[in-house]
Design a protein around this nucleic acid. Structure first.
Lengths: 139, 139
DNA sequence: ATAATTACGGACAAATTTGTCCGTAATTAT
DNA sequence: ATAATTACGGACAAATTTGTCCGTAATTAT
């Protein structure tokens, strides 16, 4: 469904949000360890999230990554947007460039119901809500 | 959601099934033209579908690809299986290796409802049903 | 038998994704 | 000031996906 990069982005964001809720910053080493992702590759992913305003970072000792209160209230879809992968929620399931009511693919009528639920899910759930769910894992 | 190869496989299968319903075989050139896919790459995809028993083929003049009556009644999911991509229907949305009721990811509870509808869709719709839908496009 | 047509199979090539490495900049503690 | 720690950015490298090319096998028409 999603690329590895986006999967890591989602898990890392949720993990960092959990730490941020306790007013803690967390560094690259801890994050990649916690979510089970390759460290250097995760660094790239976190940079992308930082550049796109999902997470914040500070360098130096006791530096690390965190999410502002405001960021935590964003829908989880914003992570997909930052990773340039929220097109998945909108695309035709068989890959037609144009697929609509008037020019549908064979699965259009059925899939559009599922697609709208997917969009709703990513739009309605905030990062905070997901991070604060008791008993959830990121690894 | 799916790879290009699988998207082409789904579209090609539906197109070939449409032709087969009229007792016609169709060749590589016609198929790739009809579904808007690169010809040589599509050849590989069709080979894979043939080897996995989704479609049949015969060489020589007036040869081409077709689906038996029996093949047309298979669920569209069998195309995903042949392309080794039906894991998408089962996987955790954030990519956890283990994600279950007892060890869930943050989106598990909500996504499992959507996932079950996806599985239902691909399991309940036969190739024939999709191919015979009036007014559907494959390009 | 021969030529023509079609799918098959293998070897490549290009593009993209995934991943590593390493020097630099920023920040903090001493 | 200096050393230590952390993120940043760029250059690569490996793996995978997407795509092409071309000779061979199978089949049909003549």
């Amino acid at each position: 469904m999603f690329s590895k990069a986006t999967e890591y982005a989602l898990r890392a964001t949720i993990y960092i949000a959990q730490k941020s809720a306790e007013n803690k910053r967390t560094g690259l080493a801890e994050i990649s360890q916690a979510i089970g992702s390759p460290q250097s590759f995760t660094a790239k992913v976190l940079q992308q999230l930082t550049k796109n305003g999902i997470i914040d970072s500070i360098s130096g000792p006791n530096g690390g990554f965190y999410l502002s209160e405001k960021s935590r209230q964003m829908p989880i879809r914003s992570v997909l947007t930052a990773m340039k992968e929220d097109e998945v929620l909108v695309k035709c399931i068989v890959g037609l460039a144009e697929c609509s009511e008037t020019k549908p693919c064979a699965m259009h009528a059925q899939y559009k119901l599922i697609k709208s639920q997917l969009i709703q899910l990513f739009e309605n759930m905030s990062i905070e809500t997901l991070a604060n769910k008791p008993g959830t894992n990121v690894i």
